[in-house]
Design a protein around this nucleic acid. Structure first.
Lengths: 222, 222
DNA sequence: AATTGTATTAAACACGTGTTTAAATTCAAA
DNA sequence: TTTGAATTTAAACACGTGTTTAATACAATT
């Protein structure tokens, strides 16, 4: 029967299953059934279920990136434009639906309940991506703003993106499906996150600018 | 042995177990063992595991609220103060540790993977709490800002709080434990979320104020 | 053609789960 | 003391899980 490699067929089929059910609730039997191979194949080719999972994660990483890549920038691209691109990319990766979206869903699962694979993702995927945002914020904020403040801002942006992925069902319960479809499609979410975050960041810059000239510092200065 | 009601003992013990392991991974055997009762007791007193879970959720709701209540306000309390109290309360409920923290952890689980119990929580807990924030934002923003904009801001605040609960282990992996303990204790997280969000909200107000007088509207107006 | 090693298969294994059963026990009311 | 319902108990049940096994098929090699 099997025209091609059973091993590849398993890797191909396991991704969406792990993504939808998670590692624990996904069953070897379901994966093998969908791959049209025998139940023992997973253990024969991968040793055990977890090894298969780890290899799937490693495949998911480049897939997720290529599905929603960052645009090209040149030296004249303003940092606000870069930040917008970065946020759009992050939202697309987190909320995206369609063809290869299982890869990003799977990566999201790792964030929420890290397994051994998460270290790898942090080093190879998250940290580089965060570093890009950090450089952008450095351009916007200047180096008077301390490092940890930039990271807090990046976390705040990522948090908002993650919220709509993780708590999507809660949002539906809170708003009703009508309101949600009216004001909470992906583009509107991106626009809000961008405006909300960018104004907060700009204000942070002003806070440190003014604290250089005079010595005021607080929230009540808009 | 059992000095008191077996039923109550089960309810008391099941809370922390469900909170730590989640509904699926928590086992009836562990609960009964910790309660010092026979394995069959859960089915005898509650019918099945899920009924026990639902009753535990109902107990968790008032516990979580009483553990971190909102302070009293009077008619002279400024809305910025109220918002600060609201955020502090939300962070305390989400990130709190200690005695009764299992109840809020359990409620967080419902948000991330809603069961039938979530409808109840939304109606009795989340919506009233969000409505409070909505009124505060109405005070700050005025009614020129459309309703859905206020809700987006509330989601952005809640998102930041949720992030540090849900992705705490990711934050640790990204920062290293040193940096995390230096700049990411609960008080500093609260301060950042407050400053970040309040400046974004104030800016939103200014945007709508200026769009009443002139017709400009955009992000680049700080 | 015989042999060797890889690949595939159906079956069974070992274990943990929620649940049920039926007997034993308790304990208060008659 | 007897009765009978409520409770507690140990054991087993039914099912799903990942994994292993031993037999078989098949192609490549000698």
């Amino acid at each position: 029967m099997s025209t091609i490699n059973v091993r590849e067929k398993l890797l191909e089929v396991a991704g969406p299953v792990f993504s939808e059910k998670g590692f624990e609730k996904a069953t070897v039997r379901e994966i093998c059934q969908k791959a049209d191979v025998n139940v023992a194949s997973v253990n024969y080719y991968f040793g055990d279920k977890e090894q298969l999972y780890l290899e799937v994660i490693c495949l998911a990483k480049p897939m997720g990136v290529s599905r929603a890549p960052l645009p090209e920038w040149n030296e004249h691209t303003p940092p606000e434009q870069k930040l917008e691109d970065w946020v759009i990319t992050l939202v697309r990766r987190m909320l995206g639906t369609g063809e290869l979206s299982w890869s990003n869903h799977l990566i999201m699962r790792e964030v929420l309940r890290p397994t051994r694979a998460c270290d790898h993702l942090v080093q190879e995927l998250f940290r580089p991506f965060v570093n890009i945002a950090d450089k952008i914020l450095l351009e916007i904020l200047g180096d008077e703003v301390p490092d940890y403040r930039r990271m807090q801002c990046i976390f705040s942006i990522a948090a908002q993106c993650q919220f709509y992925r993780v708590s999507g069902s809660l949002v539906t319960l809170m708003l009703g499906e009508e309101e949600q479809k009216t004001h909470y499609n992906t583009e509107q979410i991106i626009e809000h996150i961008l405006q909300f975050s960018l104004s907060a960041i700009k204000n942070l810059k002003h806070e440190y600018l003014s604290s250089e000239m005079e010595s005021s510092s607080s929230l009540n200065q808009i």
